[in-house]
Nucleic acid binder design. Structure first.
Lengths: 342, 342
DNA sequence: GTGAAAGCGCTAACAG
DNA sequence: CTGTTAGCGCTTTCAC
């Protein structure tokens, strides 16, 4: 059959033949050039050039066990937090000539399981995972089989698995302290479902801030939960609150999109409240500083999270064993005009 | 030395031994279960379970040539267009149980070359690339060596390489026609450097729209180029234009971030012009609909670009050869209130 | 300094 | 239906 097969990739053997040496020597040129005489080495390098030889990573991995691939599973690659973290991962891996296999689980345990499997088959040297749900069973099993695993954006409950996360309680506390410092004694939190750990933690942080001031959270804090964490859902939910008397004067939003929805609804329905309602968001998305009313927000060091996680994955201790650690980054409050009223 | 080595991953041989069959049979259970008797199959599957056996993808790839990895190099994974496209790629690959190796070149040809190399070593079954610069030399060389390559977001100048792109000229034309339809006869384009093809094409599209109306682009269109395509840079550049008399009444921005900067500057310096300046952006970023003045924008089908590109990579013709094609998607104008004045 | 040869884990003939 | 075996491309002793 005249099936035009791609010309087989040239192998180390082809190079050896062309250079008139043995395969072992070619391998040495590749891996321990100093063990090879100058003249031979040049001849081999020339042959490599001429054949456009590219070593076969699979063969190398099979024989030498050298692995230069790391897997990462995030909930959704479109989420800017994960994208930023992924970039941190990538940059750290690049320093070690490793490459990243990236996948989105969509918060679906089955998808997650599929990718875990695929990555394990590929023999990745390590795995970065933002787990779906709270069942770490599959991950622990994987770790037990020797795959070095780092939890991303979630504190690990066990020492068997490392983790790199951001302190959401601290973030909530920062937002709370800021609003309290501004004199507010009634704080509305527009929160998401408590099934999401981040939502719980940020609220807990807000409570903590209030308590530290010697105040009663039950009096100061009011939580309103919205099902969908976007601007539209937030605007709808906030519309009702705007009709109350008095309307909220201080709002802590569980993320920036929610804050954008709140701002928009105020502008639309009660523009006179524009400079009179303090708003704090979370995430510090790129556009936060560029809004009509620049948004005060809690910034998470996403890039650093990824970078550090990758670093952990590549690290070995003195005995050559993977290093396990639990890293927690602190967020940072970025104050802009949405919270500091005229 | 008590170096705690990870327990070697169990192999097909271990499974065979435990099940009391030969490796060939195990392989058959894995790849052609129907060729194996029920009883034997069950015994093997049981052994696989007990040993938590996971096949070694490297070995399989080496022996069978079966490759389930695709590489993608974008300029920066943080760019939402690429992220969205990457998600499309991922979803298409998932259907075929393939995985994605993703990398950012930072528009740096050296970084690009490094990743091309890495991916080639890994023997990826195909490559998706948003090329840095215009030198396709390295990519052509790669394609020549049999690596199926698809250009992302750039029309391929050669049939040796496929491409999936979005028609930027059409996008510029849509923006232009929209503004012309609204009666504008003086259109300002806030553009980026002409070194960027997208910037050139979108301007060309605007010109095209004007010409189609029988008007003279030199009269109707005024282009102002800004070096940095973000809200801050745009605001600065636009400040000067706002002082002119008359101030611009119709602005086509080369991307949404630029449009956000323009909106902000108007609101800050000449709020009385707020409802009197038509603004059109490009990209339709998530926040576009949520802004104080929802932004009219040209939407690019990023997800579809990625999905289709991956699809092309996986496609084979009747002879089993990779399919080459040049796909161009059309953008879509999303009209919101920033352009349609009261 | 170089070559010969074994073997990593797996698939695909082929024999029985 | 199942077992045996060659070999994918490479690294790594071990001789010479």
């Amino acid at each position: 059959m005249p099936r035009t097969t791609a010309p087989r990739r040239s192998s180390i053997g082809d190079v050896a033949r062309l250079a008139g040496v043995s395969v072992g020597t070619v391998s040495n040129v590749l891996n321990r050039p100093d063990r090879v005489a100058q003249a031979t080495r040049d001849r081999v390098l020339d042959a490599i050039q001429r054949l456009s030889f590219v070593p076969n990573a699979s063969a190398r991995q099979l024989r030498a066990g050298t692995i230069t691939t790391v897997g990462a599973i995030v909930l959704d690659i479109r989420n800017p937090f994960f994208t930023e973290a992924a970039r941190g991962v990538e940059d750290r891996l690049a320093l070690a000539d490793h490459t990243l296999m990236l996948a989105s689980s969509d918060d679906d345990p089955e998808r997650e399981a599929r990718y875990l499997r695929l990555f394990e088959e590929h023999g990745v040297s390590g795995l970065l995972v933002v787990p779906t749900g709270d069942d770490l069973g599959p991950l622990l099993a994987l770790a037990g089989r020797g795959v070095h695993t780092v939890l991303l954006d979630m504190p690990s409950p066990t020492d068997a698995i490392s983790s790199v996360a951001v302190d959401d309680v601290a973030g909530g506390r920062m937002a709370g302290e800021h609003l309290l410092d501004l004199g507010h004694r009634e704080i509305l939190m527009l929160n998401g479902p408590h099934a999401i750990r981040q939502c719980r933690d940020r609220l807990a942080g807000l409570h903590r801030a209030v308590e530290r001031r010697g105040l009663d959270p039950d009096v100061v804090v009011r939580e309103v939960r919205i099902p969908s964490l976007d601007a539209g859902g937030a605007a709808t939910a906030f519309a009702a609150l705007l009709d109350e008397d008095p309307a909220p004067r201080a709002v802590f939003c569980v993320n920036d999109l929610v804050a954008v929805g709140v701002q928009r609804e105020i502008r639309r329905r009660r523009p006179e409240l524009l400079g009179r309602t303090a708003i704090v968001g979370y995430d510090d998305i790129e556009i936060a500083a560029e809004l009509a009313t620049p948004l005060t927000s809690v910034r998470q060091p996403a890039y650093e999270v990824g970078y550090r996680a990758a670093d952990l994955l590549l690290s070995r201790d003195a005995d050559g064993n993977p290093v396990r650690d639990h890293v927690v980054f602190q967020p940072e409050l970025v104050v802009r005009s949405s919270s500091v009223l005229a």
